[in-house]
Design a protein around this nucleic acid. Structure first.
Lengths: 343, 343
DNA sequence: TTGTAGGCGTTATCAC
DNA sequence: GTGATAACGCCTACAA
């Protein structure tokens, strides 16, 4: 027997159950089952099941204006900090019957805009953006369009948004304190792009670090990279080394930049941590298995995703909700890439 | 001035342009513009643009039965082999106006089934599955439902499907040849779950390796793990070591298992590669930065995603297309985790 | 408690 | 070349 290919719709179920389609609709919607008698409800339910009926989210979405779909925009999925975040997002969305439309903008704003159009055309009920720049016309556009929106990892300068970010000031402070305690006094800083909130916040935290006179940030030892990538870190740290100024440790604004530092040290015949201590930020997977293992700031990435998803759902359910900033607490993971300076 | 919140629909555009909605529809659809006069087409186009009209993919999908949405199911997004694949998929889909609905099943078949339901309810035009087991009722169900389908990375035993997989036999062969050339004669094998095609194929390739008498696979030195994880690799390799049989190298069926081997060696006070050579499979990001850097089989993951997406789109456009198997060619990346045996 | 009717926004089909 | 109409599958006032 060949099972019929045609999808069964609500009318088919209604016909078989001897009721009207609207009754079936009510039975299958948790909010309205109560309007229908138990007997009918049970019969309809079982018939629907045995016919393999699946409600069409498309049709229902057209009617109700809700798609139970969330757009998630990531700058680069191969950056290892994002998979855990995405996973947290998805798990939380799934629990509530939502599904994620994922897009990777490949760090290009042009892509981002096209992708958002495409998501809006699909009537996503809300957006989670991991792509924010400090001044971000795209984020502004979403806000003006009143699309429920949560920013994750990075945020914008220009207005209040619901966001889940890391406490970067604390992360940098923990790092510096660790290095100072090991005896470092001349510490360089390899920063990220200043047009991102993470780049700016970490930079500022370093520049404004105040301690009991044991260490003073030196503007001449601070360099910014154009992107959070190994290549940029490599180049940036070479330029720092080539300044000819002495320092015994470098704080990189994220792990990828720190990996670039490793490369630069190799180029110059220097060894980590003997000749130079290096720290990262984010604690990406496998950073504990590097040569040497990277001392870095751990961020609860999965939690970041979970919180972002939950916030978005409350925002969707109650659009009047005021914007909230959730700041997650990082911790320092001390590993082999840092040690007391040579003498 | 407050811009109106209400979305403009096709009728609004039609009214302003002084034409009928169907004309607008024709103008905005590349396949049907030719039916309409140039003058009207241009006027409608510009009016649509200036009104900020965006066609509703939901409504259009309801009418046409196509959502331009593809479901992508991944067993675990934090396994670093998947982000590059997903990225390749997305980029290719995007080029053709499709978008990806991504879900992470967290390696659970129960989740997979619920997720597929949810995707089907959203009328995905096709599916890319990275979750296949050799016998996989879910894949069977998709085929029976005649959903355009492409398997990626792993495949099934039971029937012909369109799939993009790696040439695992070649990967294992390259690995063994490398070790034999270094002088290894007793080589252990740490396999993956036998219910996956990758687990089975790699195992078989090892077991059936034929060479000019320099090396003979030894069944007593072959162990299978229940999952491709560091923990499983750790336990599995401990059990292999505890057999008390001598061997100088281990071929792990993927990189995560190889990392588990590193852990086990540490437990037993052994060093890689001095006391034991270790090889992996997949060449995940950062495997070149481990201690020691991992000798492993490189797979073109991005290409895997790209090919899968392209195949799926041809399948969608021509459902009668016969199923194809694309087998990608791996290469061996020789690094520090392998060296000639001690004596 | 259940049925009726209308419409969500688009497009295929037919008519002009 | 363009307009009118119906239908995709579902939901929700409103009526009964």
């Amino acid at each position: 027997m060949v099972t019929s290919r045609k999808k069964v719709n609500i009318k088919d179920v209604a016909a078989k159950a001897g009721v009207h389609a609207s009754t079936v609709s009510r039975v299958l919607n948790p909010d309205t089952v109560s309007m229908v008698s138990n007997a009918v409800a049970e019969r309809v339910t079982s018939i629907a099941r045995e016919m393999g009926y699946k409600r069409s989210a498309i049709a229902s979405g057209l009617r109700t204006g809700r798609s139970y779909t969330i757009g998630v925009l990531i700058p680069d999925l191969t950056n290892p900090i994002f998979p855990p975040i995405v996973r947290g997002i998805e798990r939380s969305l799934d629990e509530e019957g939502y599904i994620a439309v994922l897009a990777d903008s490949d760090n290009s704003r042009k892509n981002e805009s096209a992708i958002l159009d495409s998501m809006n055309a699909r009537h996503v009920d809300g957006l989670i953006l991991a792509t924010a720049h400090r001044k971000d016309p795209l984020v502004d556009a979403c806000i003006e369009d009143q699309i429920p929106l949560v920013l994750v990892n990075r945020t914008i300068d220009t207005r209040a948004v619901t966001e889940v970010i890391n406490d970067d000031e604390k992360g940098i402070r923990l790092t510096i304190e660790h290095l100072v305690q090991q005896g470092h006094r001349k510490i360089a800083y390899l920063g990220g792009p200043p047009d991102t909130s993470t780049g700016r916040d970490r930079h500022r935290a370093f520049a404004q670090f105040k301690h009991s006179g044991q260490f003073e940030p030196d503007p001449d030892l601070m360099v910014s990279c154009n992107a959070f990538t190994e290549q940029e870190g490599h180049q940036g740290f070479l330029s720092l080394l080539d300044k000819g100024r002495k320092f015994s440790a470098v704080v990189a604004a994220n792990d990828l930049l720190a990996l670039g530092c490793f490369d630069a040290l190799k180029d110059r015949g220097l060894r980590c941590p003997r000749d130079m201590s290096v720290t990262g930020f984010n604690d990406m997977p496998f950073m504990d298995r590097l040569t040497p293992p990277l001392t870095t700031v751990h961020i609860p990435l999965d939690e970041m995703g979970v919180k972002a998803a939950k916030l978005l759902l409350t925002l969707i359910r109650n659009p009047a909700t005021k914007s909230v900033t959730v700041k997650l607490t990082p911790s320092l993971v001390t590993r082999g890439s840092t040690m007391a300076p040579a003498n």
